[in-house]
Amino acid sequence: MSSETKSSPNDLQLFITLSRAHQWVTAHVQKDIRRSGLNPTEFGVLELLYHKGEQPLQQIGEKILMTSGNITYVIDKLADKGLAQRKASSTDRRVIFAEITERGRQLLNDIFPPHAEAISKAVSGLTEEEREQAIKLLKKLGIAAQTSFT
């Protein structure tokens, strides 16, 4: 701990409260995802491809915080289900893209609106104003933690 950082009795309480809130919100979201026949990792990759278009395999992991080995496995599972496919780069033979298939796009068209509703339900304990305030505070907390990480 640097000499500029002072410990507060609330530090541990904030950490515990934040962790528990995250755990319960995540539980709501994961329960909803499982209804679609996907696991949370498959859903995360499919959602990325749905919203951002084709992605190089090596960049998918960075965007959804997964290792490249796991991405290969997840893309294989999504391909087996007909929801995503690999596509070679036309400009660099070393680069392989993943893209959502029409079947995957249709699945997300069907399940994303209820998924967004499940997220809304999970965070409904706060008013809209409180949610805006929480977003600002949590961004501030995350940036500070990232900056101080060594």
Rank of each mutant, 00 (worst) to 15 (best):
A122P: 01
A134Q: 03
S120T: 12
S89F: 05
I71S: 08
E132C: 06
V123S: 08
L78E: 01
K52A: 14
I75K: 13
L107I: 00
G44N: 15
E47M: 15
I71R: 04
I119N: 04
H22M: 10
M66S: 10
F15K: 15
Y50E: 08
S120N: 11
S7Q: 09
L83D: 03
D92I: 01
W24T: 15
F15A: 15
A118M: 08
Q133M: 11
D76Y: 10
Y73K: 15
M66G: 05
K140D: 06
A144S: 10
L138Y: 06
R34W: 13
E54T: 12
D92N: 14
D80H: 11
T127W: 01
L14F: 12
N10P: 04
H115C: 02
S124E: 04
K136S: 08
Y50D: 13
P114D: 00
S19K: 12
S120M: 11
L49A: 05
R35M: 11
F43D: 06
A144I: 04
Q59E: 13
A118R: 09
L137P: 02
S68N: 15
Q58L: 13
Q59Y: 14
L49T: 01
E129Y: 02
S68A: 14
Q85A: 15
P40I: 00
E99D: 10
R131G: 01
I16M: 11
S120K: 11
E130T: 00
D92H: 06
L126W: 05
L107F: 02
G44W: 04
I71K: 07
S7T: 10
